[in-house]
Simulated assay, not measured.
Amino acid sequence: MKKDYYEILGIEKGATAEQIKKAYRKKAIEYHPDKNPGNKEAEEKFKTAAEAYEILSDADKKARYDQYGHAAFDGGNGGFNGGGHHMNMDDIFSQFGDIFGNAFGGGGGFGGFGGGGGQRRMKGSNLRIKVKLTLDEIANGVEKKVKVKRKVQAKGVSYKTCPTCNGAGQVMKVTNTILGRMQTASTCHSCGGTGQIIESKPSQADAQGMIMEDETVSIKIPAGVADGMQLKVSSKGNDAPGGNSVPGDLIVAIEEVEHETLKREGENLHLDLYISVAEAALGTSKDIETVTGKVRIKLEEGIQSGKILRLKGKGIPSLNSYGSGDLLVHVNVWTPKTLNKEQRQFFEKSLTDENFIPKPEKSEKSFFEKVKDMFS
Rank of each mutant, 00 (worst) to 15 (best):
L56A: 07
S218M: 10
K173I: 13
K13T: 07
D4W: 06
S276T: 15
T335E: 10
R121A: 05
R128T: 01
I219K: 09
F346N: 03
F368V: 00
I221N: 11
Q19Y: 13
E354L: 10
I178R: 15
V171D: 03
E255C: 08
A240V: 01
K47H: 01
T216K: 13
G302C: 11
G112M: 00
N176C: 01
G124Q: 07
A168N: 11
A223G: 09
N238H: 13
I211F: 05
M210K: 09
G141Y: 11
T16V: 04
Q230A: 10
Y31D: 06
N340I: 11
G14Q: 07
P33M: 02
L273G: 08
N268F: 08
G78E: 01
T261F: 12
T335R: 12
E342F: 05
K35F: 00
Q304M: 10
P202L: 02
V152S: 07
I197G: 05
H330L: 02
I8V: 15
S276M: 14
K26Q: 09
G167S: 10
E348S: 07
G169F: 01
L127T: 06
N244E: 04
S324D: 07
K151N: 08
S321M: 11
E12P: 04
G141M: 10
N340T: 11
D272E: 07
Y159E: 04
C188R: 07
G69A: 12
I219N: 07
A71C: 07
L273S: 12
K2L: 07
K3I: 10
S324K: 14
G116D: 03
R121Y: 14
Y274E: 14
